[in-house]
């Protein structure tokens, strides 16, 4: 059973979404629907599975439906059609009380525009989820302080959000989501307002946290490098349609259409591609010059061993963790993998 499962979800915004649904199902485009009916297609037949403990990154241009998709998971938005299952439970079937309970204990969310409470101090903001869970003030403040420290805002706990910079506000939102310690975290452009240094620091923290706690994270971003760094799987949305889902390497090496291709064309491939992906396997490798070899591990990214190769002008022998030779990489393989296909 997948942690999160989305089956054929449609979302149409407008006066009478149900009436437009058949048109959308028949394959009319987003522009046609808007022209002819004044309705906006938010999601168009999206199906998706997210496994426990993975980080799923959702990408797409502005207006492609990323925020709409993530809001379906905790039912801030109800789908026009389709099912959403969390741990096998259909969230559409939850009554009011169970939905509230589910939101309190199962999921937390970071908002694109922060969604902070302007009348509450930082520590009160961070403790809000805990307050909803019914935790005592003492416990709330203790946990909140830990999370405030984790995002590097110690000393600001008694300030109000509008006294902080955008990036600091975003970190308050992040701390608030971390505080409730839920299995599933929904992060809508959680790092987009941060400067590059703090951003990469936060990414690192998230990965460390992930390695330790194995939460299920749905992460939205505009930034391909970020998605490649964080994502176990990446889903790409275009005008409400999910056009490709795959591992970072899949997306970079085999883009499904021009839209995805345009996304990945400027990516630094050396950062994404691992040695084992481009090596020529042992049994196919003949006539390779073995005089000048360096050993690399199969899980290393090209970026990591590229300097060595260039400096020593050598070929690579790719080995697994036990040291068994798995294949070879020569200049030829390197060139073809790094050049745009």
């Amino acid at each position: 059973m997948s942690k999160i499962e989305i089956n054929n979800v449609y979302k149409i915004f407008g006066k009478n979404p149900k009436s437009v649904l058949p048109m959308v199902k028949d394959g009319a485009t987003k522009e046609d629907i808007l022209d002819q009916t004044g309705h906006t297609v938010g999601l168009d037949n999206v199906s998706l599975k997210i496994e426990e403990g993975e980080t799923f990154v959702c990408m797409g241009l502005s207006g492609s439906g990323k925020s709409t998709l993530i809001r379906h998971l905790n039912r801030l938005i109800d789908p026009t059609d389709g099912d959403i299952l969390i741990e096998g439970t259909n969230v559409m079937s939850l009554n009011k009380e169970s939905l509230i309970d589910f939101r309190r204990h199962k999921m937390s969310m970071v908002f694109q525009r922060f969604g902070l409470f302007p009348h509450k101090t930082v520590i009160q903001n961070v403790g809000y989820g805990l307050e909803m869970q019914g935790k005592s003030e003492e416990e709330r403040n203790k946990t909140s302080m830990e999370k405030i420290e984790a995002v590097g805002l110690t000393g600001f706990e008694n300030q109000y959000p509008n006294q902080l910079s955008g990036g600091m506000q975003q970190r308050v939102g992040l701390a608030r989501a971390l505080a409730t310690d839920t299995d599933i975290m929904l992060m809508d452009e959680a790092f987009s307002a941060l400067d590059p240094l703090i951003r990469s620091d936060m990414q690192k923290q998230l990965m460390d946290l992930q390695a330790e706690l194995k939460k299920t994270i749905v992460f939205i971003t505009h930034d391909l490098d970020e998605s490649l760094r964080l994502g176990d799987h990446i889903g790409i949305l275009n005008a409400g349609k999910l056009v490709q889902v795959g591992t970072p390497v899949d997306i970079v090496m085999n883009p499904a259409d021009e839209y995805v291709e345009a996304f990945v064309k400027d990516v630094n491939r050396a950062k994404v591609i691992k040695a084992k992906v481009i090596m020529t396997p042992v049994n196919e490798a003949n006539g390779i010059d073995k005089s000048n070899m360096i050993k690399i591990e199969e899980d290393q990214f090209i970026e990591e061993f590229l300097p060595q190769i260039v400096c020593t002008n050598s070929n690579c022998e790719v080995v697994d963790k036990q040291g068994n030779t798995k294949g070879y990489i020569s200049n030829k393989e390197l060139q073809s993998s790094l050049l745009k296909s």
């Binding site: 905790n74 939101r103 694109q112 525009r113 969604g115 302007p118 909803m132 608030r176």
Partner: peptide, 24 residues
């Protein structure tokens, strides 16, 4: 979005009213 945040963390309509809507 402030309201959504309150909902997303599981506020009941009454809690939402008292802790967010009225104060704001």
């Amino acid at each position: 979005e402030t309201l959504e945040a309150s909902e997303a963390f599981g506020a009941t309509p009454m809690q939402k009213l008292k802790s967010v809507q009225i104060p704001l």
